[in-house]
Amino acid sequence: MSAAGRYSRQILHWGEERQQQLEAATVLIAGVGGLGATVSQLLTRAGIGKLYLIDDGLVNWPDLNRQTLYSETDIGQPKLAIAKQRLQQINSNVKIELLPKRIAHSFRPPADVSIIADCLDNYLSRFDLEAGLAAGSFLIHGGIEGDQGQVLTLQKGTSQSLADIFAGTRQPQGKIPVTGAGATILAGFMVNELFNTIFGQPQLLNRFLIVGLSDLHLTFLEV
């Protein structure tokens, strides 16, 4: 199948030029769990040029309600290995590089990365991820808890930092409640913003999109 045929339905929407921009783009996805599994899958289906995936976890039973790349036969396996296998089955044209590690303060992204998807599940790792980014990089942050979540785009060096915005915020004790619908909806908003950013028109730069799923509200908060 030709690229034009494969991506014909989305090219009808955004055109050939943007498809070429997408196929030339590289995105780093930090965390391949509830948000990251769906974000990586949708970017792969759309024909992103290259993905870096970071995670150090193993597939576990409680992951299966929302982590859309994994299944029962993957229990106990490294998430990254399974993710790459599934993503390459979906689209073998996408280059996928694995970084099997936990994000620490010493983390520095590969030199060809300027767009980063924060799909992490804790504030400390988010702050460590952000600290290592090069000036001008775009960080698309996503967070989900119960039926509430948010997406925000920041540009390193010009925006307030995530660490400043979330200063003093404590990580909740214990496991965080997350549903499959909540994680998938927030991941969809993240991918939409990743497309906007790749096309040079981020819509959530310095502006939270706050999503409430119980009463179905969307609001913005400028930062």
Partner: peptide
Amino acid sequence: RRNIHHLEKLETPIHDGDVIALFPPGAGG
């Protein structure tokens, strides 16, 4: 748009026209 953690926390003075936002973010991913 500024977290009070960087100001004077709960003792930060309020002025006419200020906009206060109360936002509990989602921590998971």
